[in-house]
Every structure is written in C-alpha cells, then in structure tokens.
Lab assay of single mutants.
Amino acid sequence: ALNRGDKVRIKRTESYWYGDVGTVASVEKSGILYPVIVRFDRVNYNGFSGSASGVNTNNFAENELELVQAAA
C-alpha cells in the first residue's frame, strides 16, 4: 500500500501528469474510488508555472500509480 510522502509515477494515460512523478499527500481509507491524493511540482494547464492558480494535486487509484521511492 502507498503511504504519505511516497514518490509515485503516474500511469493513467489520459492524465496531464502521465509519466510524471508526484508525492503522495494523503491516502483516504473510506473506500472511495480514487483514494490517493498526489501532489506535483508543476501545475496543470489551469494555471501558469509559478502561479497559485493552477491545480497541482489530483486523486488517483492505487493501480494507476507506480512506487518510485518509499517515504523515509
């Protein structure tokens, strides 16, 4: 299972961040479909780089994520 702070690569092909590595911000335990919230260094097309207006978190299912580096 994934944990907060883990570095993960995104495998959801239609995602803006496909192939990117993000950090797990939190994992919901309530049984929702996309329980893993991942935070990225770059914002998506809703904002400009360096601006706070873009979105830099997204929810994924565990099977859409590949663990790159476990949290220390």
Rank of each mutant, 00 (worst) to 15 (best):
A1W: 12
A1R: 15
L2N: 00
L2V: 07
L2P: 03
L2R: 00
N3I: 14
N3T: 14
N3S: 12
R4N: 08
R4Y: 09
G5M: 01
G5E: 02
D6Q: 02
D6Y: 02
D6C: 05
D6W: 05
K7E: 04
K7P: 02
V8R: 01
V8L: 03
V8G: 01
V8H: 01
V8S: 02
R9D: 03
R9S: 06
R9F: 05
R9T: 06
I10G: 01
I10M: 01
I10Y: 03
I10Q: 01
K11F: 04
K11Y: 05
K11N: 09
R12Q: 06
R12P: 03
R12W: 03
R12E: 04
R12K: 09
T13D: 05
T13S: 10
T13K: 13
T13L: 13
T13V: 14
T13I: 14
E14P: 04
E14V: 14
E14M: 07
E14C: 09
S15A: 01
S15F: 03
S15E: 00
S15M: 02
Y16C: 06
Y16L: 05
Y16R: 03
Y16V: 05
Y18W: 05
Y18E: 04
Y18S: 03
G19M: 12
G19C: 09
D20L: 08
D20T: 07
D20M: 08
V21H: 02
V21R: 00
V21W: 03
V21G: 01
V21D: 01
V21Y: 05
G22A: 03
G22M: 02
G22C: 04
G22R: 04
V24W: 03
V24I: 08
V24T: 01
V24G: 00
V24Q: 00
A25C: 15
A25W: 12
A25H: 11
A25R: 09
A25G: 03
S26V: 08
S26Y: 13
V27E: 01
V27Y: 07
V27T: 04
V27I: 09
E28L: 14
E28G: 11
E28N: 10
E28V: 11
E28T: 08
K29W: 08
K29P: 11
K29A: 11
K29N: 13
K29T: 14
S30F: 07
S30N: 10
S30K: 13
G31N: 15
G31F: 10
G31Y: 12
I32P: 05
I32D: 14
I32L: 09
I32E: 14
I32R: 08
I32F: 10
I32C: 14
I32S: 14
I32G: 15
I32V: 11
L33M: 09
L33G: 09
Y34T: 05
Y34M: 08
Y34S: 04
P35T: 11
P35D: 06
P35G: 08
P35C: 12
V36W: 04
I37E: 12
I37G: 03
I37Q: 12
I37K: 12
V38F: 01
V38T: 00
R39E: 13
R39P: 01
R39V: 15
R39L: 15
R39D: 06
F40M: 03
F40A: 00
F40R: 00
F40N: 00
F40L: 03
D41I: 09
D41R: 06
D41N: 07
D41P: 05
R42P: 04
R42A: 06
R42T: 08
V43Y: 15
V43M: 08
V43I: 12
V43N: 06
V43W: 15
V43L: 09
N44K: 12
N44H: 14
N44A: 09
N44F: 15
N44D: 15
Y45N: 15
Y45C: 15
Y45E: 15
Y45H: 15
Y45Q: 15
Y45S: 15
N46T: 11
N46C: 15
N46G: 10
N46Y: 06
G47S: 11
G47K: 05
G47E: 15
G47P: 15
G47F: 07
G47C: 15
G47A: 07
F48E: 15
F48D: 15
F48L: 13
F48H: 14
F48P: 15
F48K: 06
F48N: 15
F48V: 15
S49I: 14
S49F: 09
S49M: 10
S49H: 07
G50S: 08
G50D: 14
G50I: 06
S51V: 10
S51E: 13
A52V: 12
A52N: 12
A52M: 10
A52L: 12
A52F: 06
A52Q: 14
A52G: 12
S53Y: 10
S53P: 10
S53Q: 13
S53T: 13
S53F: 10
G54T: 05
G54K: 06
G54D: 06
G54W: 05
G54C: 14
V55E: 09
V55N: 06
N56Y: 11
N56Q: 08
N56K: 05
N56F: 08
N56G: 04
T57W: 14
T57L: 08
N58E: 15
N58I: 06
N59I: 05
N59F: 07
N59T: 09
N59S: 13
F60D: 02
A61L: 04
A61T: 05
A61M: 10
E62S: 07
E62K: 06
E62C: 11
N63H: 14
N63E: 12
N63W: 14
E64G: 01
L65R: 03
L65S: 03
L65A: 00
L65T: 11
E66R: 02
E66A: 04
E66C: 05
L67H: 03
L67Y: 04
L67M: 06
L67C: 04
L67G: 01
V68E: 02
V68Q: 04
V68D: 01
Q69H: 10
Q69M: 12
A70V: 12
A70Q: 11
A70M: 09
A70E: 14
A70S: 12
A70L: 10
A71V: 11
A71D: 09
A71Q: 08
A71P: 06
A71C: 12
A71G: 07
A71M: 10
A71W: 12
A71N: 10
A72G: 14
A72M: 11
